[in-house]
Design a protein around this nucleic acid. Structure first.
Lengths: 169, 169
DNA sequence: GCGGGATATTTTAAGCTTGAAATTTCTCGG
DNA sequence: CCGAGAAATTTCAAGCTTAAAATATCCCGC
């Protein structure tokens, strides 16, 4: 089975915000689907697993699981299994600190770090390829405007603000 | 548990294509997470379920399951369960055509159509809210440039082309 | 009208994800 | 010191998702 990304879209006749959202989503799906397929085919890795490795690689001395879940924008319960599987692959090790035994820190094993460098290089290449026909101006524009989108969305999250400043003005 | 979207991002020091991809992904995650939470809280619906209903609402006379999976960019096996759950909710009905008994057509029940109108109106409002601070120019720019991104990505999919024209020069 | 290949869907196994409840450990005021 | 509440993680049930294998049906050339 392949089930290649056919990527239908844009119903037409919808509010423009909706059309923008649908296009954003289908674009992200198109790319992540391709990345996922390649990670699997080339390295037997899932995308979330790659994501964990990337976070751990970025951190010097290991990452608390709670921080990992924040950085990855997923729930705590999620990282538990993810890290467990990566540990059984030998890519990640878990350590319990003696100062606070509630905390578990995950860090890359030497094998994990070595392998991740290979994964990351391929991943970067794929992205560069896939986005090769998006020119410098478009990239910069997208980066900036997507930042604006995120800012707009964040101001309208879920009713209750759980941190940060109260709605300015 | 809430596990609000903290949305870390952009490692800095990565190739610009990678940064663009990470921003695109985190933006999509931020929005879809919020939409998912609201659908669940207000209507007890999952996002994929909403997606199925939207596709069926759009179609006049029912949709073959295979076409549904194409339109939704998910595998065939996926829609089987999705449609089964929506059927048990009474929102969707499945019909087997007598001309071709391999084919199953899904269509909204009157209840499903009625309810979907409510869901869709709320959904549209949420999106309009979340994107309210993205001005007209930015929206148009994003729509157009995301289209270009999709085009670029499609040209670099998975090695084998399974349909469409051979790479035009 | 038969049989092989194509087409449509379902099933299956493995893994991801959420939200909520449960555990474990810590902190701190009295 | 003790106990209440906070904090970090795990467990759990339900649902999503994929890729691959299995089923079921159809089409077509002989």
């Amino acid at each position: 089975m392949d089930m290649e990304a056919i990527v239908h879209e844009a119903p037409e006749g919808h509010k423009v915000e909706l059309r923008l959202w649908l296009r954003l989503l289908s674009t992200a799906n198109l790319i992540s689907g391709e990345v996922r397929r390649r990670l699997r085919a080339e390295f037997g890795l899932t995308l979330p697993q790659f994501d964990v490795l990337a976070q751990l690689d970025r951190a010097k001395g290991g990452v608390r699981l709670g921080e990992l879940s924040e950085r990855m924008m997923v729930t705590n319960g999620n990282v538990t299994g993810l890290v467990a599987r990566l540990e059984s692959e030998g890519y990640v090790r878990r350590e319990i600190t003696e100062q606070d035994r509630r905390v578990t820190v995950a860090r890359l094993t030497p094998l994990g770090r070595r392998r991740f460098r290979v994964f990351a290089a391929a991943h970067e290449t794929w992205l560069a390829e896939m986005l090769s026909q998006v020119d410098e101006e478009a990239r910069e524009s997208l980066l900036q405007r997507l930042g604006a989108v995120k800012a707009s969305v964040r101001r309208h999250l879920g009713g209750q603000e759980e941190e940060g400043k109260p709605p300015a003005a």
